[in-house]
């Protein structure tokens, strides 16, 4: 049976206010709320869809982070066969370090290289490169990104991957496993896990803890962040304030000025 490993990574929730650390070189991780990286959730969903449609063993691997248990129990509740949490990590790992710990778990805990390794296509903090291609390089596997659909090849072995191109065009590729695929969107929106189902999973299923200790300082990082800051909103926008009615009135003026309200 096809074996699929999915990497699930937590990333800062950008809907929240992002604070910069005192060093001025990273976010202040103490003040952050983390959420699963959006395209990683799609990668999990795509793996579960493949399992339902064609049969597969799905292993979800996550890096330790606040709130990650909920995401892992959610994956188990939805049908993932195993959930592994990598522990013993520092905060603020580089993407290269994340790729490195993930490949160590693939080699060690999972044993054999899975047929498919799915990651999200990109994370909002992938500053030193994308995790999928980095994993592919470490494991000597091919990589294809921006994937929006996967199915077994109709005329032979392997899989067909659908990749999104500009302007709504899609391209089909034959993929001979093993391969690393960067998932942009699953064919179906990631399923919602009702609280009761989540709680049931937390009681009956188990997250496997796998420590992968890393040195406390990054090992010779290839890039250096000199400064990080919040982007100041450009002076360009004229901000409208007042009551909802006042704002609507002002916007009407703007629309009329564009000849969009035929009077």
């Amino acid at each position: 049976m096809m074996k699929i490993a999915v990497l699930l990574k937590m990333a800062p929730d950008v809907v929240e206010e992002l604070e910069i650390a005192a060093s001025g070189k990273s976010l202040d991780f103490k003040s952050l709320r983390m959420a699963p990286n959006e395209s990683d959730e799609h990668a999990v969903e795509e793996a579960l869809l493949l399992k339902e449609r064609f049969g597969a063993k799905v292993i979800v691997v996550a890096l330790e982070a606040p709130e990650v248990d909920e995401a892992l129990f959610g994956a188990l509740a939805n049908g993932a066969d195993r959930a592994i949490k990598i522990t013993g990590l520092r905060e603020n790992l580089t993407t290269a370090e994340e790729a490195d710990v993930f490949t160590r778990v693939v080699r060690g805990e999972i044993g054999a290289i899975p047929d498919l390794i799915l990651t999200g296509v990109q994370a909002i903090d992938d500053l030193d490169g994308l995790i999928g291609p980095l994993i592919a390089c470490e494991l000597g596997l091919p990589f294809l990104g921006v994937v929006v659909g996967l199915s077994p090849c109709p005329d032979g072995a392997g899989m067909v991957a659908l990749k999104e191109c500009p302007g709504g065009v899609r391209a089909e590729f034959d993929v001979t496993p093993p391969a690393v695929l960067g998932i942009q969107a699953a064919e179906r929106p990631p399923r919602y896990v009702p609280l009761a189902k989540l709680q049931a999973a937390a009681h009956t299923k188990k997250i496997e803890l796998v420590p992968v200790p890393l040195p406390t300082d990054p090992v010779n990082p290839l890039i250096e962040v000199l400064r990080m800051r919040r982007r100041a909103p450009a002076a360009r926008a004229e901000m409208l304030s007042g009551s909802v009615e006042e704002i609507a009135g002002r916007l009407c003026e703007v629309l009329a000025g564009q000849d969009l309200i035929e009077e």
Partner: peptide
């Protein structure tokens, strides 16, 4: 420009 466009970083390769 990262974190969904909210943060700007100055970065140098080593």
């Amino acid at each position: 420009v990262l974190y969904g466009g909210k943060i700007e970083a100055e970065v140098t390769p080593r």
